[in-house]
């Protein structure tokens, strides 16, 4: 046990224990007295699944029943990315422009893995209609592929600091918003898709969401991480 002054004072820790313990005990108590066998909103989702245009209930909730939530969450993602970029973008020109700095094994692995990840991402996007998958999963896999390429020196973040980056980050939200407003003009309600085209519209939104989520996740890392050379120096410096 370290000396006390390295951590919060004992009084603070005791108070924290009382607060978090009290909150935790109340939370668990509240959760355990929830009514048993309550069906929640599952029957409602099931009853309307046919009308939603897709067969995966989670996708139906995300893009259709509660599309408003999802749209605003994408807005949060965009805002967080703007925050990170405005704090850190200055360093992106220090990244290597070619793969010459990457370790041979990492470079070979990235060449092999990145196309596979793009393929998996495309599959997840398509599968989201009827099976586990969708824009969020596809976007995370694609974003991870981008991070891998950047770490191995194949992607050049410096070339992506201008209009292209900003457009890619916001396109998902813009398409979502455009669809929402279009629905409002045609059907009279926000995100009330025309029944015949619901699946097409949702897939189009998801495709652009995938692009945006991938670029957002990749640039969150690439713009804020230290340049590769510095990372490697640190690793070599050892721990």
């Amino acid at each position: 046990m370290a000396e006390p002054e390295l951590r919060s004072p004992l009084a603070v820790r005791a108070a924290a224990l009382a607060i978090s313990g009290g909150v935790g005990a109340l939370l668990i108590r509240a959760l355990l007295v929830l009514p048993k066998d309550e069906a929640g909103l599952a029957p409602l989702v099931k009853a309307n699944l046919d009308a939603s245009g897709v067969k995966n209930p989670v996708t139906a909730v995300l893009l259709n029943f509660r599309g408003y939530d999802t749209m605003l969450e994408i807005a949060v993602l965009v805002l967080a990315t703007i925050g990170v970029l405005s704090l850190t973008i200055a360093h992106s020109d220090k990244w290597p422009t070619v793969a010459e700095h990457a370790a041979p094994a990492l470079s070979a692995l990235a060449r092999f893995l990145a196309p596979a990840m793009v393929l998996v991402s495309g599959y997840l996007l398509w599968a989201g209609e009827h099976a586990p998958g969708g824009a969020f999963q596809a976007g995370s896999v694609l974003g991870a592929a981008g991070i891998l390429l950047a770490l191995s020196g194949y992607a050049r973040p410096a070339g992506m600091t201008g209009f292209a980056l900003r457009a890619a980050i916001t396109v998902g939200f813009i398409v979502f918003l455009a669809a929402a407003i279009g629905d409002m003009l045609i059907e009279g309600a926000l995100l009330e898709y025309p029944a015949d085209h619901a699946k097409t519209i949702m897939l189009a939104i998801e495709a652009w969401l995938t692009v945006s989520i991938a670029v957002i996740l990749a640039s969150l890392f690439i713009s804020s991480a230290s340049p590769v050379e510095e990372l490697r120096r640190r690793i070599r410096g050892g721990r």
Binding site: V58, G133, Q137, A144, I147, L220, F221, S226
Partner: peptide, 25 residues
Amino acid sequence: PDIALAEAAIGAGITGVLLLDAAGH
């Protein structure tokens, strides 16, 4: 499974590299 797919890519992968970078920094 929907959440598991996203969590495996994000919770362990992307959050992991972000935290490792910050820890190194």
